[in-house]
């Protein structure tokens, strides 16, 4: 579906607050614009973003047509244990984009 850039610190101390960034390329077509033929361009947006940390949800968001193209999320969590962060974006066509990142907590 798309290309994504995620940034998770590779290492963190236990209990440390870490910042996570996720950027994805997507047109976020609002459904309100008209094309050259005057007809509405069908809506196509990412409507859901979800981040899990070792399977547990730590951040999620519903997105709406007013969100700009190429949505960028930045959020924080507490580094509790080593493991995997999984990112999931779902768009109006039902396509999902998945990314994962490993973190080592000492």
């Amino acid at each position: 579906m798309a290309r994504a850039l995620i940034n998770v610190p590779p290492k963190a101390k236990r209990g440390e607050i870490i910042e996570i960034k996720a950027l994805i390329s997507h047109p976020m077509e609002t459904g309100y614009r008209t094309g050259p033929d005057g007809a509405l361009v069908p809506r196509d947006i990412i409507n859901r973003f979800l981040c899990t940390y070792n399977g547990e949800e730590i951040f999620s968001a519903d997105l709406f047509p007013a969100v700009a193209a190429n949505p960028f999320f930045s959020f924080t969590t507490v580094a509790t244990e080593s493991g995997r962060l999984a990112f999931r974006w779902v768009d109006d066509k039902g396509q999902a984009h998945l990314e994962t990142a490993e973190i080592i907590v000492e």
């Binding site: 290309r3 940034n7 190429n70």
Partner: peptide, 14 residues
């Protein structure tokens, strides 16, 4: 200034 927030980097990667 931050390559992980700069959307231009999506094009660079492509």
């Amino acid at each position: 200034q931050d390559d992980t927030s700069n959307p231009g980097m999506l094009w660079v990667a492509e």
